[in-house]
Simulated scan of single mutants.
Amino acid sequence: MLLRDRLSLVEVFRITWKLDIMIILVCTLAYVADTYWLKRHISIPASITGVLGTALAFFIGFNNNQAYDRWWEGRKIWGALVNDSRSWARNLLHYCDASKAGEVPHIARRMIFRHIAFLYALKATLRKTTDPYYEGYLSKKEAEDVSGSRNIPNAILDIQAADLQQLRMLGAVDGFCFRELNTMLAAHCNHMGASERIRNTIYPPSYLFFTRVFIWFFVILNTFMLAESIGFWSVIFGWAVGFVFHVTHQNGNALMNPFEQNPMSLPLDSISRTIEINLLEMLGHQPLPSPVEPVGKQYLL
């Protein structure tokens, strides 16, 4: 996630220089084709490019709106996970009656540690990586038990449910507290499922493919039209128009998969580390991990 609300010209050029070269090359070829061949046969009315540009702008706007909805939904899910994680730890620490059995505080602490493992395992699953960091918050047996699962975060929740039932059997939580804790456990599962839904539901490739095709068609047609009135300057203006449309479309593409590791994606590393620090601090654990540092002081992963 970007930390600044503006980009320098150097950063813009570093991001778009390949696209700039491609647009200039296409516009130059279109200008040459119009100058030495096309204008002898047909004159392209300005109204055609005007109508096409308007329709294309609406189409790109729709794509970007849908992409931002996916990104924002993912941000709301992980924002809810932050709050639910703190509440989960607080309830386990203060609602469990430690006087019922000597094992109760240990069970509550390991359930909080296990929740941190759940978050890091979920992060690794969403990013399709094999980060074993979550294993540090599980016992050796638990790590072995969940390693063979196709859905490690879900397997961790299964162990959480078993321990929650054990707390109830020990009389450490009454029926009301058990119900509340079980509701929170179900909420963790719901957040996991919602995140997996976003990750596993690809954006229709036909939208992306035809949008790119239509943009290039518009850039070429616009250059044809401008070449008849302003000559070689049509290459510069064609580049300007193509740059606006292409970059606007690329901004939406960068948000379509919010769990990937790029500057525009959600900062899952930072969010997970924040929750980890909060929960360990509630347990009185020392030393606490350091917050995730921005990459180049520009964005968080």
Rank of each mutant, 00 (worst) to 15 (best):
F224R: 09
F218H: 09
I220H: 00
T211C: 09
S206E: 06
F232D: 11
E228I: 00
F214S: 00
F217Q: 11
F224W: 12
T223G: 05
Y203G: 10
P204A: 06
L221V: 14
F214I: 03
L208W: 06
I215R: 03
P204H: 08
F218L: 13
T211Q: 07
R212L: 07
V213Q: 02
W233K: 15
V235K: 04
I220M: 04
F209D: 05
F210R: 11
P205C: 09
F210Y: 13
Y207Q: 03
Y203W: 11
A227R: 05
V219G: 11
F232R: 14
P204T: 06
F209G: 04
M225A: 07
F232C: 08
I236D: 12
V213A: 03
F218A: 09
N222P: 01
F209L: 12
S234W: 15
R212W: 02
Y203C: 10
V213P: 03
N222E: 03
V235L: 05
P205D: 13
M225P: 02
G231V: 13
Y203M: 11
F232Q: 13
F217I: 12
Y203N: 10
P204F: 09
G231M: 13
F217L: 15
R212S: 10
F210A: 08
P205K: 12
F210C: 08
V213W: 01
Y203K: 10
S229F: 06
F218Q: 06
V219T: 09
I236Q: 14
Y203S: 09
S206Q: 11
E228T: 04
T223E: 04
I215P: 03
F209W: 07
S229N: 05
S206K: 12
M225L: 07
I220R: 00
V235Q: 04
V213N: 00
W233H: 15
P204G: 01
S234I: 15
F209A: 10
L208S: 07
L226W: 06
F224Y: 13
S234D: 11
W233C: 14
N222S: 05
L226M: 09
S206W: 10
V213F: 01
S229P: 00
R212M: 07
A227D: 07
P204I: 08
I220F: 02
S206C: 08
Y207I: 04
R212G: 08
